[in-house]
Design a binder for these strands. Structure first.
Length: 224
DNA sequence: ACCCAGGGTCATA
DNA sequence: TATGACCATGGG
């Protein structure tokens, strides 16, 4: 019966996280295009590895659509090597950059409706729901809540979900319970990730858990 | 040596 | 619809 925190709704979960971890500075990037590149590079990959790849791209003046389209695929792959899955991601970046140019660049994309933009992003090879929502939320200030594996794990441990619901279902739950505020969504997602990095090991002096007093329950951030 | 990390695609049943 | 294989580096 360790389920001490069960009646929390999604807004209360946010408030606990925010009170505990404070305001988050997240997704530092030099502009929307760089956010989008980072969103692809960070797929199933530690951000520290992505930073190295972004730094190498910047050194070589590759952080723009034209360069990403023109550089040979194997050179691009080599440049982003540290981010893992580099062959897949090189292809994804090249196809994304090509699409970005065809759309007419940033000014044209900013005018687009969020829902139709999301559908087009999902049509890109290698852009799934989470990557698309990263882009929409952090690059275009559109209120799409990002569901990642940490979000699933936390909600499951809090007893708010079963665990294997589809992405869109989980996202709709947040959209239903929260006002459509992009800054709220950005902070919330960042806080969930911050909490996940806190590897409280469920034992004696875990005074750091936002969800239980004294930490006896299985609602801490880290794996297992 | 093992586990984990800011997922997504594809083949198969 | 739902599982499993595959992609690959780097840090703890």
């Amino acid at each position: 019966m360790a389920a001490a925190a069960e009646s929390l709704d999604r807004k209360q979960v946010f408030l606990r996280l925010r009170d505990h971890y404070g305001e988050q500075a997240w997704w530092p990037a030099d502009g929307p295009f760089e956010v989008m590149v980072g969103a692809i590079l960070t797929q199933n990959t530690a951000w520290s590895n992505v930073e190295k790849a972004l730094a190498r791209l910047r050194e070589r003046d590759l952080l723009n659509p034209d360069a990403l389209c023109e550089i040979p695929r194997d050179e691009l792959a080599e440049t982003i090597r540290s981010s893992g899955y580099y062959n897949q991601k090189a292809r994804r970046l090249a196809e994304f950059a090509d699409w970005y140019r065809q759309q007419g660049g940033l000014d044209a994309l900013r005018q687009r409706d969020g829902q139709s933009l999301r559908r087009q992003l999902l049509d890109l090879h290698g852009v799934g729901p989470e990557t698309a929502d990263d882009m929409l939320l952090y690059a275009f200030d559109q209120p799409f809540f990002v569901i990642d594996s940490y979000t699933r794990r936390l909600l499951q441990r809090l007893g708010l979900i079963q665990g294997k619901e589809p992405y869109d279902t989980l996202q709709q739950d947040f959209h239903r319970e929260l006002e459509p505020d992009p800054e709220l969504y950005r902070q919330y997602h960042a806080l969930i990730v911050e909490h996940a990095k806190t590897r409280c090991r469920l034992r004696p002096d875990c005074d750091g858990c936002p969800f239980v007093d004294g930490c006896g329950a299985d609602v801490c951030g880290g794996p297992s």
